[in-house]
Design a protein around this nucleic acid. Structure first.
Length: 421
DNA sequence: GTTCCACAGGAAAGCTAGGATG
DNA sequence: CATCCTAGCTTTCCTGTGGAAC
């Protein structure tokens, strides 16, 4: 008897979950033909000896920006061409400073070069083997980059995903350096693809970079429910066993995701999670109810993630809202603040923040979509922010930790007490 | 029409943790 | 190590306001 005997060797539901992840690049990308053509057309130009244009790709999350870019780069690398094409993809959420981006590009080119020339020939070039993770001046890295590029004639396409993240860290200077690199290059060419979620990204850039990066812009509109269904069905054929999906499962996933601005990533997560739910329950196939449960789970974990990062006092304010709501109290800012303050008074190690801070907390909770607030006027009763709704039914459970950690006074305080105080 | 409640929400000063610098 | 700087919050202070009650 082995520990692992009790686990099923193969799934009744999945063939291979990998196909259902958004990181998988399918052979055919549905409903993005137009964007693929546009991007390919721009990237093909340098192969004919023309000066490469830089491309900026816009679109909300889950509209296929990343997958299309990677797909086109993959195809281009395989295509027979007079120039060697090297596609480099990096996500600026991780690689977020000028130095790290340049170091990554350069290191990868050096590695490539060493492989092609062999160690002996490579040594002759006098180039370093790699760029250290930190320490070199930036202009030296740039110099090595140019020299490495000039060893052979190639077209390097650098795709920077989530470029807008560079603005936060000041790393966008790198765009300027990279975009004018072609002036220093004779045999090789370098082309940039910027991928951004926010349409306003260009406005924050230096005019010099703006004109060069914004030469060609490609917009990725959100998918509608029908398109999402097509995409899910295509993936489902690969990822699920035949007959493992009940009628309408993909359509329901698509409909739920379409409601959230046509996010294909969410739709795929939903489908995969639904499969996992079905598997856990030992079901023969994925049913509609599994999709609904998967949707609940995903939503729950998303909210959990948001709550986890909130400061303690903001959680306490939210907890006050939850408790007062359960008791059917009216949720004006004043009521919430009074109860929140009492929680603090019952727990000696808590000092309450000011009403103004609580107002900011509530505004933020509203922005995060956790509660819905609205400014209402009650005439002579004054003008106040009221919490109208809690948008997630299980908020109370998610705040269980705080409920246990702190002593909570009963929410209904008599009017007399308030009068006396 | 006027009053007046209970805040809204902006501005600026104040505070603090963390990092850079000498 | 002390000192200075900085970014990100809070607090304090302030003027403004929708609309039922007067």
């Amino acid at each position: 008897m082995n520990l692992f005997d009790s686990f099923p060797r193969e799934s009744r539901i999945f063939v291979n979950k990998e196909y259902l992840k958004h990181t998988y690049i399918p052979r055919k990308l549905l409903h993005r033909e137009e964007q693929i053509q546009l991007l390919a057309k721009v990237l093909a130009a340098p192969l004919r000896g023309e000066v490469p244009s830089n491309v900026l790709i816009y679109g909300k999350t889950g509209t296929g920006k990343t997958v299309v870019t990677r797909f086109v780069l993959q195809e281009l690398e395989k295509a027979p061409a007079p120039l060697q094409v090297v596609g480099l993809y990096m996500n600026c959420a991780n690689v977020n400073t000028q130095y790290r981006i340049l170091a990554k590009i350069t290191s990868s080119l050096l590695e490539d070069l060493r492989e092609r020339l062999g160690p002996f020939q490579f040594q002759k070039t006098g180039l370093p083997e790699k760029i250290p993770a930190t320490g070199w001046p930036t202009d030296l890295v740039l110099e090595v980059l140019v020299r490495a590029l000039e060893q052979e004639s190639k077209l390097v396409i650098v795709a920077l995903d989530e470029v807008d993240k560079l603005l936060e860290t000041g790393g966008h200077e790198v765009l300027y350096h990279l975009s004018r690199l072609n002036c220093d290059l004779s045999t090789s060419k370098l082309s940039l693809i910027g991928i951004s979620n926010s349409t306003g990204f260009l406005d924050f850039l230096d005019p010099r970079i703006r004109s060069s990066l914004g030469e060609v812009q490609i917009v990725f509109p959100p998918y509608n429910a029908i398109q999402l269904t097509d995409i899910l069905e295509e993936r489902a054929k690969l990822g699920f066993r035949e007959g493992a999906l009940a009628e309408g499962v993909t359509r329901l996933c698509a409909a739920l995701a379409a409601r959230e601005h046509g996010d294909a990533r969410k739709a795929l997560d939903l489908l995969r999670t639904a499969g996992e739910v079905a598997e856990e329950k030992g079901a023969e196939r994925v049913e509609l109810e599994h999709v609904r449960e998967a949707s609940d789970r995903l939503q729950r974990s998303a909210v959990e993630e948001v709550l986890r990062t909130l400061p303690l006092h903001q959680k306490l304010v939210l907890l006050s809202v939850v408790i007062l709501k359960q008791n059917g109290c009216r949720l004006s800012l004043g009521e919430i603040y009074r109860y929140y303050k009492r929680i603090c008074e019952h727990n000696p190690d808590l000092t309450p923040v000011s009403p103004r801070a609580v107002k900011n907390y509530l505004d933020e909770l509203d922005m995060l979509g956790i509660v819905s607030t609205s400014v209402v006027s009650r005439g002579r009763g004054g003008r106040t922010t009221e919490v109208l709704d809690l948008n997630y039914p299980h908020l109370g459970e998610l705040l269980e930790d705080e409920r246990e950690r702190f002593e909570l006074p009963p929410p209904t305080e008599s009017k007399l007490c308030r009068f006396l105080s």
